[in-house]
C-alpha cells in the first residue's frame, strides 16, 4: 500500500531512507517537462531531498528545482521603485494561494506587503511549527523600517521588492503577486541559490539583506521560541535529555 499524508510510509524507491520533517505547506515540483502544481500538500525531507505527495500519482516524489529560467539581465538590473504608505488585513486568493494584504502598512504598500509576506513564508514555511506569517515577520519588518532602518536599508528593501517583481516578469511574464504558488516558490528558491552563488550583484546584496532580516525577526519571535525561559533560576551543565525536558516543562530549575 502506498504511503499517503494520512499514512506516512515510504515509496518503493525510498523505503530505506530516514524520515525527515513533514509539513502542511504549499509547494511545487517539476517532473519531466511539465510543471505540476500541488497546493496545500504534505512535504517531507529525505536524505537531502524534498519530497512532496503527488495526488495524481498517489505517491511521494522528489522535487527537482528549476535551474535556468531567471535571466542574467534581471539579476544585474536595477529598478527603483518608490512607494509610500501605511497597513493590514489579508484575504486568501484561492486562485494562486496568495495571502493578499488589503491595506498599506506604515512603510510598505499593500502590494509590497503581499509580496514580502509570501516571500517570508516561502523562506520559513509553517510546518509542524509556526511559519513566518504566524510570527508576524512582515508586520514587524514594516514597523522596523521606521524605527530601525536607515536610508540605505529603506532603499534596499523597497528595491528588492521591485527586483523580485522584475524577476517574476522576465521569468514568467507577470508580476510576482499574480503568479501561481509553484512559480513563486521556484522563483525565490532560485533567487536564493543565485544570490549565494554570486554575492557581488546588487540583487544578491539586497536579497541577502532581506533574508537576514526575515530570519532575525522570525528567530527572535515568541512563536519561534516556545521553550524560551526568561528566568531559568540556575544553571546545570550535565543533564540527560530526560532531565532537561523535565526542567523545560516545569519552566524553572
Amino acid at each position: 500500500m502506498p504511503e499517503t499524508p494520512n499514512n506516512p510510509g515510504h515509496s518503493e524507491s525510498e523505503k530505506n531512507t530516514a524520515s525527515g520533517s513533514v509539513g502542511n505547506v504549499s509547494f511545487i515540483m517539476l517532473l519531466g517537462a511539465g510543471l505540476i502544481s500541488i497546493r496545500r500538500r504534505y512535504i517531507k525531507y529525505y536524505s537531502g531531498k524534498f519530497n512532496v505527495f503527488c495526488k495524481r500519482h498517489n505517491r511521494w516524489e522528489i522535487i527537482y528545482m528549476l535551474d535556468n529560467k531567471i535571466t542574467r539581465r534581471v539579476f544585474l538590473g536595477t529598478t527603483l521603485c518608490v512607494v509610500t504608505a501605511p497597513l493590514f488585513a489579508t484575504l486568501l486568493n484561492e486562485q494562486n494561494n496568495l495571502q493578499k494584504v488589503l491595506m498599506d502598512g506604515q512603510f510598505f504598500n499593500a502590494a509590497e506587503l503581499t509580496l514580502l509576506t509570501d516571500v517570508a513564508e516561502i523562506m520559513i514555511p509553517k510546518t509542524d511549527t509556526p511559519g513566518a506569517t504566524d510570527a508576524h515577520v512582515i508586520p514587524v519588518l514594516d514597523g522596523l523600517m521606521l524605527t530601525w532602518a536607515g536610508v540605505k536599508s529603506k532603499r534596499q528593501f523597497r528595491f528588492i521588492v521591485a527586483q523580485i517583481n522584475d524577476l517574476a516578469k522576465s521569468t514568467y511574464g507577470s508580476v510576482y503577486n499574480k503568479l501561481a504558488f509553484d512559480d513563486r516558490f521556484l522563483l525565490i528558491e532560485q533567487l536564493d541559490k543565485t544570490a549565494f552563488a554570486n554575492k557581488k550583484s546588487v540583487l544578491s546584496t539586497h536579497y541577502r539583506r532581506l533574508k537576514e532580516m526575515v530570519f532575525h525577526i522570525y528567530y527572535t519571535s515568541e512563536e519561534a521560541n516556545p521553550d524560551f525561559i526568561l528566568i531559568p533560576g540556575g544553571y546545570r551543565g550535565s543533564l540527560s535529555k530526560q532531565e532537561l525536558d523535565t526542567i523545560q516543562a516545569r519552566g524553572y530549575l
Partner: peptide, 18 residues
C-alpha cells in the same frame, strides 16, 4: 543556529535550525 547567511530556504532549513 539559524543563520540566514547561508544558501537555503524552506522547511529543510527550518528543520535543521537550532
Amino acid at each position: 543556529g539559524n543563520t540566514a547567511k547561508r544558501e537555503g530556504i524552506g522547511a529543510k532549513v527550518k528543520a535543521e535550525a537550532n
